[in-house]
Design a protein around this nucleic acid. Structure first.
Lengths: 157, 157
DNA sequence: TATGAAACAACAGAGAC
DNA sequence: GTCTCTGTTGTTTCATA
């Protein structure tokens, strides 16, 4: 995939506000509306853009407790096992296998401490989980493109 | 803020695809298009919806290395100090102060290992940073609403 | 191959009910 | 909440460098 500066600027504009009209974006980057649309279509077809979504404030919706749970698994646990166990929990918003002591890191939102503990217990009770270690988020310092926005740095490497 | 089931279903529909028309969403949830629009407007006014954005595949854009960097700070380091230092780094997509041994956890995307190391060095050289500890993401298991999507569980607590 | 201009269809927005 | 109208926008077609 080769992106040029125009593609990058279009991505920036969409990241800030995906409801901008093609004409608006065109005015920003110096193209006509159809030209912008064609590039956006190409970015989607190539997989760079995977969709359009809404930015939500978790706190405003009642998710006031956030944390990361590291999970340590037994031998012969596959990433698929972990995935299957976690995808049933709606409070889990992200999970990755990682290097280091823990096998995976799980990002969790909960209504409050009591709820967080409940989620922690559900994760800990998964058969492949040997133990967990969790840290709570005190204050979210920075979320590129606001809370829960595209997890990408916004420019090309 | 009080959300009812209709609001929640509208949020779900928008999270999946923010470009759905109000009429489409209305057909999904059993409302007319203007009724959906009014609810979306209210959700924006109340702060539950903070905006609309594009979902991006970091790997497709060349960000193939992801990791978490825990930073340990000196005494009398304020969250603002950390924020100021990190916001200048485009590779940092999220950061939070946390409980536990580390003072903050930083999520970073980089082009490759070499680039990741560079970012790590830049963070480690901040005056308030005493030491860091980083883990690399092996495979992203789960991203609710795909990579880089809203970091919220998708239903109400 | 990428673009701009024009034409059409679909939609958002605002009002009355 | 719905229905209706109007201006705007998305989308396609076509011509062009």
């Amino acid at each position: 995939m080769r992106l040029n500066d125009l593609d990058e600027r279009i991505l920036h504009a969409l990241a800030e506000d995906a409801r901008r009209s093609y004409a608006d974006i065109g005015a920003l980057v110096g193209l006509s509306a159809p030209a912008v649309k064609r590039r956006v279509d190409r970015l989607r077809a190539e997989g760079a853009i995977t969709g359009f979504t809404v930015r939500v404030d978790p706190a405003a919706l009642g998710w006031r407790t956030e944390g990361f749970i590291e999970i340590y698994c037994g031998r012969n646990t596959s990433p698929d096992d972990i995935h299957r166990g976690l995808e049933r929990l709606p409070e889990v918003v992200a999970a990755s296998t990682v290097t280091g002591d823990a096998d995976a890191v799980v990002q969790v939102f909960a209504a409050d401490m009591r709820h967080f503990e409940e989620v922690l217990e559900r994760i800990a009770s998964e058969p492949y989980v040997e133990r967990t270690k969790s840290v709570l988020v005190l204050s979210p310092l920075l979320r590129r493109y606001t809370a829960g926005a595209p997890q990408w740095p916004g420019s090309r490497p």
